[in-house]
Structure formats: C-alpha cells, structure tokens
C-alpha cells in the first residue's frame, strides 16, 4: 500500500524548459527514501510539488488516495507533511524554540507544554537550551538547518520531506540526523523522503530514486 504516489508528473518553469518529465514514484510508510541527482536536476522543484507549494503541469500527486491539488493545501502542509526547506524558511525575529512552537500552533497540536516539547526536539537534533533560545540569525547555517528539521518533526506529520537536510552539517551531525530519520521511519512508521547529494545519506536510505536516471531512461 503506497502512502504517496507521483503519476506521470511533468513540470517546467516559465521558460518552458522541462525540469521534471514523466516522474512516477511511489512512497510507503516506515521507509526512508533518498532522491538524488545533480545540482539543477529538479530535486527542489519536485519537493515543492510534493509539498503542495506548486502544482505539476501534468500528472498527479496522490496522498492517501487523494489528489493533493484537490485538498486543502494549508492543512496538508500544516498537519500531514513536514518540510525541511533547502533554504530553511525560518522566521528571523523568532528564537529557535519559537519557530518550532509556531508550527505546532499552526497545526493546532494538543500537547501540554509546547515549549518543552520543542526544546526536547531541538536537543535531539543537537541544539542545547542556550542555542534553542537564540534568535535564528544568531545561529550558524548548520544550526539553522537543525532547527528546520526540528520544526518539520514538531507536529508529528506522516510524511517528512527534507531538502538537503544535512547539506551544511559535518560527518558527525550528518550521522546523527540520518539516524533520527531512520528511527522515525522504522520505529514511528513515518514516510521519510530525503533529497541529497551525499552518498552516505543515500546509502542509509531504504530506497533511492535517481532523478538523473529517470531522465536517462527516457532519453
């Protein structure tokens, strides 16, 4: 049973150069997927489509048997998919904790102490309490990336979409993050989809989709 399905997805930007051409992928819960491809191959574009921020020019994206272009995209993003953006998309005037709590608020999550939950999530991705209370711009790129990961996990989505989540991290932290993703998939039955350059991250995944290969296959 697939949770997530891309059917004949095509996409091009305003200049009409095809970025995604007839993509057919399937994703299941309890697995870690890696999407690889060279820079500019369309990985971020694909993630935008999967997170409902944009719509395919043709083809369908099915989530839980629903075409996501036909459901409430805000609710879809705030409740069902946790997205780690390549450019983080954190709010600079808020602290790390506040950024995480905000997502929990938007998802209308019913937990006792949101700040406490947010702090333990941040601890899990390797940020101590002092850093968790800093404003975003006072954190390093890698630290910001980990805040973005914590935020994506905060409202307990079924799907996690992560765009280069370890792009700014050293080997040690990268290992830690991939371990978290693996646990989420294998212990909490999440569907984890990671876009990555890194061979080691790809190697830790259960399934690897190569966008480059998809193109070659078509050619």
């Amino acid at each position: 049973m697939s949770l997530f399905k891309l059917e004949n997805v095509d996409y091009y930007y305003d200049n009409h150069v095809k970025v995604l051409d007839n993509i057919n992928y399937e994703f299941e819960p309890s697995k870690v997927y890696a999407i690889t491809g060279k820079s500019g191959s369309g990985k971020t574009t694909l993630l935008s489509l999967m997170s409902g921020l944009d719509k395919p020019k043709s083809g369908k994206i099915i989530y839980n048997d629903n075409d996501i272009s036909k459901i409430d995209e805000d609710k879809y993003r705030s409740h069902h998919v946790g997205v780690v953006f390549q450019s983080f998309n954190l709010l600079p005037h808020l602290t790390a904790i506040e950024n995480v709590v905000l997502s929990m608020d938007i998802a209308n999550l019913k937990v006792g102490n949101k700040k406490q939950v947010a702090l333990s999530l941040l601890n899990e991705v390797g940020l101590d309490e002092e850093k968790a209370n800093r404003r975003i711009l006072k954190l390093s790129g890698g630290e910001q990336q980990r805040v973005a990961i914590a935020r994506a996990l905060s409202f307990q989505p079924e799907v996690i979409l992560a765009d280069e989540p370890t792009g700014n991290l050293d080997m040690h932290n990268e290992k830690q993050i991939t371990e978290i993703f693996r646990r989420l998939a294998h212990e909490k039955n999440k569907c984890v989809i990671i876009v990555t350059h890194s061979n080691s991250v790809a190697a830790s995944a259960d399934v690897v989709y190569d966008l480059e290969k998809a193109k070659e296959n078509l050619a």
Binding site: S51, D74, R77, N89, I106
Partner: peptide, 15 residues
C-alpha cells in the same frame, strides 16, 4: 519573506 514562510508551513491566508 515572513508571509512566504508562514504560508509555506501551512498557515492559512486569513490567519
């Protein structure tokens, strides 16, 4: 940027 971020994490327009 703030609007874009809030909307990309699923906050509704009217909110």
């Amino acid at each position: 940027y703030e609007i874009g971020v809030l909307r990309s994490i699923g906050m509704k327009k009217h909110m």
